[in-house]
Every structure is written in structure tokens, then in C-alpha cells.
Design a protein around this nucleic acid. Structure first.
Length: 483
DNA sequence: TGAAATGTTGGGGCG
DNA sequence: ACGCCCCAACATTTC
């Protein structure tokens, strides 16, 4: 009897799972495992992501048990766990889908070598990208730094939509194996001890099945309005698939195929445009992965080296806290930060607005914002998070130039004209008329009284003067440029 | 996937 | 009918 181990990492699904398919074809006994490692990595899993991971693992375990198999969960150093398990089960093959973060790459290549020394072969696969970084280089051998040519090139090269549907019955896992050093998911302590996760529970249902529901819902109700609707945070205008994609509960190929199927019955120009616009976002994800792969220091260091000398503020603890808590006094920013804290997610338009305020108006290092997002987002993804923050801070690839400073009032008026989003997350401004909802500090005293808003008491005064801080940032940028 | 300042145009009011 | 001014609407430039 030949035995293989399938090591699940950021591919917590059965559908379209290349490592799983290969293992099932290659060996008679297939042991699916997950390893929770001690938190000594550069980016240990954040609190919100842990919550997600707990439920995601439970869902995967359940669906494997449903098929007569199981998910064996271990806690400890991945290399040691794998070596031990290979010895005790006499497994000769280990299968996994590749990770692309710098320290995951290092870990995996070390493990691969160690396993080889005990005569265990590792087979790794692309389980999550449309095109892997080494297949996306320019003709001159350097990586793309601008999105549009990148996107054109990988489409032109042809994208293979890997497809695999898991069988109903998997090889059974013996009780002896189930009890060997495994740990129960609940014993991993991934859930918070005090119940701040109410909002997450109310908002999300992790798991492969749920991701599929999201796609269908998106295609039925949302995608046609996507090109404009994706910018309106007050409506449900996006797919909200980001956490599922991060944990690999859904493959980008399945999303792509679903849109292809939808396109056969939606052939008008509006539908074509909407489908393209959405798939383009999937392209951004690959672009981010490729950037982090070729510029592995960018999780902490600006890609544009001019910014190494940028005079960020150095004492910002109090201000950072106000931003984190959604108490900046700028309604659309506070709405976003509170949406994040409550639901573990923030609308992308609003991510740009809050990031612009932090890095440009407040001059707080973007790394601080990235760190907060890492801890609080259920879709926290090193490649996407890094690219997003460097993009708004103006120091990344294909980034918004530094002088592009969002005015959160203008943004609010354009993208939340009826104040729906702000009122939902900043209820203390509920009764303020649309005209003042994005700038309560400009409202006449009488209007404030009528809305029962007392600035500095029921809702904060704005913590920065937007016009003034904008000028300050521009001046710093000019200095930096000329030096 | 900016915002503000500055420039241009053209319709309408008015002497 | 004409020139002048005002200003909204749009375009361009600058940061």
C-alpha cells in the first residue's frame, strides 16, 4: 500500500485542488493534513484571520469526513511534523500547492530538502494563481511594474483554468492515525477568548460551499452593475470573495469559469464590460503576488527608493489609535474603520480613502496601517495588503503618485452621496442631513442641534485640517523630489 | 482607482 | 443688433 501526505496550507478546498488530485492519482492511501505553526514568522496570522481559519478548517475537515477521510491537524514546526509523519506512516510522497510569500518559500524549500534526505519526494503545484511569477516576466527578463501590460501579457500567454472535481469517496483514515499527535481544531485556540467576534459571525460564513454561494449571488444580483457599483460602499456592489480567495476556499479558475458560463447567456456590451472589469480585479491579485515574489522586501520597505528618506511622523501613537478606533472626526473614514473592526472587512474604495488619510494627511508610516489591516482583516493577504498600501502611499509599483491626495469629503460626496454608508457605521450622525453628513464640522449650529450632534462630545471634531495637511504633504513631497 | 487652480467656451442678460 | 460682462460647464495644468 503506497501512502501520500497532502499538506493543506492556503488551499482549504477540495474542488480544483491540484495537489489533492495528484495525490489521489498517485497513491492508495492519502492523508490530508494541516499544520498550525508556532508564531515566529514575519507575519503571524492576525486575530481576524485566525477566526476565519478556525471555521475554514472546520469546514474542510467536515467535508473530508463526509467523504470517508479526515483532516489531521497538528500544531508545531512544520518540518518536524512532516518528517515524523512520513516516518510513522511510511509515506513516500508529500503533495502541496505552492505559497509565494518570502518566508513561506524559504520554509518550503528547506522542508523539501529535508524530506528528500529521508527519501520522500515532494510534489508542488500551482493552486492559486492564474499565472505564476516565473511565467510572467517581460521579454527582457524583468518583472512587470505596470499593471495593464502585465494583464495583457498573461492573457495573451493563455491562462489555463485547472479543473478537478473531488470524488465522493476518499481512502479511509485509520483511528490509530487520527489519534497520533493530532489536535482538535478547538484546541488550537484560534477563536478570541472575549467575544469581539460577534460581528464576524454575523457577517461571514467561511468554507468552500459558502464561497460558491457568493459567486452565484454575485452573478445573479451584482455583476451587471459592477463597473460603477463596486465604488459605492453603501450598496452590495462587490463579490466579497477576498477572504475565500486568500484561504484558497475558492480557486480563481472556478470564478473565471463561472463568469464564462454566465457570459454565454449575457452577451450585451454592458455584460461584457462588467465581466472584463471583474476579471481584471483577479488580475490585480496575480500582479500583487508577482510583485511580492520579485521584490520580497516590499512588505516593510518602499519599492520606490526615494521614499526611504521620507520624513514620516515618528510620534503618532495617539493619532494612530484615533484612526484605528474610527474616531478621526471624518465620517467616511470612521465608517470604514468601524466596518473593519466589526466585520473584518472594508470596502475597497474606503480602504483607499482611510489609507490616504493615514499616510498623507497624518503622515503616519503606511507600514502602521498595513499592520493594522493585517490584524483586523479576514482577507489579510501579504501580497495584496502590501501592494494596496504602497499604492496609496505612492511608493509602490504602478502607484498613485504621492501628490494624489484623496479629499475624504469629496470622496464621500461622490461615492456615498446619500450618506447610507456613513449612517450605517456612524450612527451618531444618523439625523444629519445629506448635505452635511460628510462634513459635520461645516454644518450650521442649528442643523447640528436638530440632529442632536455635539461636535467634540457626541462625535469628534476632525483630527486634522484637510486643506492644511494636504498642503503640508505636498510641500514635503516637493522637498523630497528635489533633494 | 485625485483635487485644486487655472484656462476656455458659450449662452444669456443687459445696456 | 451689438458688445460687454457674468458665470456655469467643461478642459487643461499643476501639485
Amino acid at each position: 500500500m503506497t501512502t501520500a501526505i497532502v499538506w493543506f496550507r492556503q488551499d482549504l478546498r477540495l474542488q480544483d485542488n491540484p495537489a489533492l488530485e495528484a495525490a489521489l492519482q498517485s497513491d492508495q492511501l492519502v492523508i490530508p493534513i494541516y499544520i498550525v505553526e508556532p508564531e515566529k514568522r514575519d507575519w503571524p496570522v492576525g486575530a481576524a484571520s485566525k477566526w476565519w481559519l478556525h471555521h475554514s478548517l472546520s469546514a474542510l475537515q467536515q467535508s473530508l469526513r463526509h467523504r470517508g477521510s479526515d483532516l489531521l491537524v497538528f500544531a508545531g514546526n512544520a518540518e518536524r511534523v512532516l518528517m515524523q509523519l512520513c516516518r510513522s506512516t511510511a509515506a513516500r510522497h508529500v503533495f502541496w500547492n505552492r505559497c509565494y510569500e518570502p518566508d513561506a518559500i524559504e520554509r518550503d524549500s528547506n522542508i523539501k530538502n529535508s524530506l528528500l534526505e529521508i527519501a520522500v519526494n515532494v510534489y508542488s503545484f500551482n493552486g492559486s494563481l492564474l499565472a505564476e511569477p516565473w511565467n510572467t516576466l517581460k521579454k527582457d527578463g524583468t518583472p512587470y511594474r505596470v499593471f495593464t501590460p502585465f494583464w495583457k501579457a498573461i492573457q495573451q500567454n493563455g491562462i489555463t483554468l485547472f479543473c478537478f472535481t473531488p470524488p465522493k469517496h476518499f481512502p479511509a483514515i485509520s483511528d490509530k492515525l487520527k489519534n497520533s499527535n493530532t489536535i482538535k481544531i478547538t484546541e488550537l485556540n484560534l477563536l478570541p477568548s472575549n467575544r469581539w467576534d460577534m460581528g464576524l459571525t454575523e457577517t461571514w460564513q467561511p468554507g468552500e460551499m459558502s464561497a460558491r454561494k457568493y459567486i452565484h449571488n454575485f452573478l445573479d444580483a451584482t455583476i451587471m452593475q459592477y463597473p460603477d457599483g463596486r465604488d459605492i460602499p453603501g450598496i452590495s456592489g462587490t463579490s466579497r470573495l477576498s477572504p475565500y480567495l486568500h484561504f484558497g476556499e475558492i480557486s480563481p479558475w472556478e470564478i473565471w469559469r463561472s463568469i464564462q458560463v454566465w457570459s454565454t447567456t449575457h452577451t450585451d456590451s454592458g455584460a461584457i464590460k462588467a465581466a472584463e472589469c471583474y476579471l481584471r480585479q483577479l488580475g490585480w491579485r496575480d500582479f500583487a503576488y508577482q510583485l511580492l515574489y520579485y521584490f520580497p522586501h516590499t512588505d516593510t520597505q518602499p519599492l520606490d527608493t526615494r521614499f526611504t528618506a521620507f520624513p514620516w511622523k515618528s510620534r503618532y501613537k495617539k493619532e494612530l489609535q484615533r484612526w484605528q478606533q474610527g474616531m478621526t472626526g471624518i465620517p467616511i473614514v470612521d465608517a470604514g474603520m468601524r466596518e473593519l473592526w466589526y466585520s473584518g472587512w472594508m470596502h475597497n474604495r474606503v480602504r483607499m480613502i482611510v489609507a490616504s488619510l493615514l499616510s498623507k494627511n497624518l503622515l503616519i508610516p503606511w507600514q502602521q496601517g498595513a499592520q493594522w489591516f493585517w490584524d483586523t482583516l479576514v482577507d489579510a493577504d501579504l501580497a495584496n495588503n502590501t501592494m494596496g498600501w504602497q499604492w496609496t502611499a505612492g511608493c509602490g509599483a504602478d502607484a498613485a503618485p504621492f501628490f494624489r491626495i484623496f479629499n475624504p469629503v469629496r470622496q464621500g460626496e461622490r461615492f456615498d452621496p446619500d450618506g447610507r454608508y456613513v449612517r450605517r457605521w456612524v450612527p451618531e450622525l444618523q439625523a444629519l442631513p445629506d448635505k452635511w453628513i460628510h462634513q459635520p464640522w461645516e454644518a450650521p449650529q442649528q442643523v447640528l442641534e436638530q440632529a442632536e450632534v455635539v461636535l467634540g462630545k457626541t462625535y469628534p471634531e476632525p483630527m486634522v485640517d484637510l486643506a492644511q495637511s494636504r498642503q503640508r504633504a505636498l510641500a514635503i513631497w516637493n522637498d523630497l523630489k528635489s533633494s
